[in-house]
């Protein structure tokens, strides 16, 4: 599904990603962990196509297509979804109207007719029930005045509506209390269907208690320096990141 080869990127001349390699197959859940400043959020931004970052090397293919060659909106229409760390507010635009626009833009891209209003509302009701979303949230302006937890739940709800092939979650757990974390994780788990893939970017292990990864990767200084299974996350939780840093420095000196 997703194949990242030697990806290098920088922002304002500062090198952040120094050759990332990662392969994600359908149905897999990959966790990307790492200390602050390792390049975690940069990786998600580059995959989604944020213009501030310059890709200086490497390739990314998504279902056989060159992802880096596409506009951000086309990446989304192809099925890449980014759950934002800081979802933005759009005053005066309801979540309902926003999603209707998004879905119909995607359908247009795929050569389909726009969804009828009634069909859309029915579809949305189903997803709201599935995600246990409060009805009031969807008629309010998008994310405006939402609490941190409501914003993150709204991200997961949008994911449910847009039915992406690949979801990248950028520190979705940051700022969530334990109840909100549970709700958000439960939502994500409901969307797992053996086909959809997830890249879960997080600083802490606790999210991975709820969304159990198949693979865990440690990002440090713009590279994946260690990969393993879910137990690697537990080890990081117990020992911190310093031993990994030490290992990397040792290798560099050897």
């Amino acid at each position: 599904m997703l194949e990242i080869k030697e990806l290098k990127a920088e922002i304002e001349g500062k090198k952040i990603l120094n050759g990332i390699n990662l392969v994600v197959k359908p149905g897999e859940v990959h966790a990307v962990m790492g200390p602050n400043g390792a390049g975690k959020s940069t990786l998600s931004a580059v995959l989604a196509g944020r213009a501030d970052y310059a890709v200086t090397g490497g390739e990314v293919s998504f279902n056989g297509k060159d992802l880096l060659d596409m506009t951000p909106e086309d990446r989304a229409r192809e099925g890449v979804f980014l759950a934002f760390q800081y979802p933005v507010e759009i005053p005066g635009v309801s979540t309902t109207n926003f999603l209707k626009t998004a879905i119909n833009e995607k359908r247009k891209y795929l050569g389909l007719e726009p969804m009828e209003a009634t069909a859309f509302l029915k579809f949305m009701r189903e997803k709201m029930e599935l995600m246990e979303m409060d009805k009031a949230l969807t008629s309010r302006s998008l994310n405006e005045g939402f609490s941190g937890g409501e914003k993150k739940r709204n991200e997961v709800f949008q994911m449910a509506m847009l039915e992406p092939k690949l979801t990248i979650m950028d520190e979705t757990d940051s700022g969530l209390d334990i109840d909100a974390l549970r709700l958000v994780s439960a939502g994500v788990n409901k969307l797992k269907d053996g086909e959809r893939s997830f890249v879960v970017i997080t600083h802490y292990q606790r999210l991975l208690d709820y969304i159990v990864p198949d693979f865990v990767h440690v990002l440090y200084k713009g590279r994946i320096v260690k990969s393993g299974d879910a137990s690697l996350a537990k080890e990081l939780e117990a020992k911190g990141y310093d031993w990994i840093k030490a290992e990397v420095e040792q290798d560099a000196n050897a």
Binding site: A48, R50, E73
Partner: peptide
């Protein structure tokens, strides 16, 4: 902001559509 536009882009909404959406929301 670029942030609002990028957010819309990431949901599959093109830039011009996004501006229309944001401005219409502002004037609703």
């Amino acid at each position: 902001g670029e942030d609002q536009i990028f957010y819309c882009n990431q949901r599959g909404i093109g830039t011009e559509e996004a501006i229309g959406l944001i401005v219409n929301g502002f004037c609703r």
